[in-house]
Computed example of a mutant assay.
Amino acid sequence: MKVIDLTHVVKEDMPVYPGTEAPLLEPANTYEKDGFKETRISMFSHTGTHMDPPAHLFPQRTTLDRFPPEQFIGKAVVIDCRDLSEGESITMDRICRVGEKAELADFLLFNLGWDQRWGSKSYFGDYPCLDDEVMDYVLKGKYKGIGFDVIGLDPIADTNLTRHKKLFAKTEIVNIENLCHLEQCGPGLFWFSCFPLKIENSDGSPIRAVAWFE
Results as ranks from 00 to 15, higher is better:
residue 115 D to L: 02
residue 89 S to Y: 02
residue 80 D to W: 00
residue 109 L to D: 11
residue 57 L to D: 10
residue 81 C to R: 00
residue 104 L to Q: 15
residue 119 G to A: 06
residue 111 N to Q: 01
residue 100 E to S: 15
residue 86 E to C: 06
residue 119 G to I: 11
residue 72 F to P: 07
residue 102 A to H: 08
residue 51 M to H: 05
residue 86 E to L: 03
residue 53 P to Q: 00
residue 116 Q to W: 06
residue 109 L to Y: 04
residue 97 R to H: 09
residue 58 F to L: 15
residue 105 A to D: 05
residue 96 C to W: 15
residue 57 L to N: 11
residue 67 F to P: 05
residue 120 S to Y: 01
residue 116 Q to I: 01
residue 119 G to F: 13
residue 117 R to Q: 09
residue 112 L to A: 07
residue 59 P to N: 10
residue 80 D to H: 05
residue 118 W to M: 12
residue 92 M to G: 10
residue 91 T to P: 05
residue 65 D to F: 13
residue 108 L to C: 08
residue 65 D to T: 02
residue 98 V to F: 04
residue 81 C to Q: 00
residue 79 I to G: 05
residue 96 C to G: 05
residue 72 F to T: 06
residue 54 P to V: 07
residue 64 L to C: 10
residue 95 I to V: 14
residue 67 F to C: 09
residue 46 H to N: 12
residue 84 L to A: 04
residue 85 S to H: 09
residue 49 T to P: 04
residue 101 K to G: 00
residue 115 D to P: 04
residue 110 F to L: 08
residue 71 Q to R: 14
residue 52 D to W: 13
residue 51 M to A: 14
residue 49 T to R: 14
residue 66 R to Y: 12
residue 85 S to Q: 06
residue 68 P to Q: 14
residue 97 R to Q: 11
residue 82 R to H: 00
residue 120 S to C: 08
residue 48 G to M: 12
residue 119 G to N: 10
residue 74 G to F: 13
residue 51 M to S: 14
residue 114 W to R: 11
residue 79 I to F: 12
residue 100 E to Y: 12
residue 107 F to T: 07
residue 74 G to K: 10
residue 63 T to P: 00
residue 97 R to C: 02
residue 86 E to N: 11
residue 56 H to G: 06
residue 87 G to T: 12
residue 94 R to V: 01
residue 59 P to L: 07
residue 45 S to I: 09
residue 120 S to L: 14
residue 89 S to T: 04
residue 52 D to E: 14
residue 101 K to V: 00
residue 60 Q to T: 13
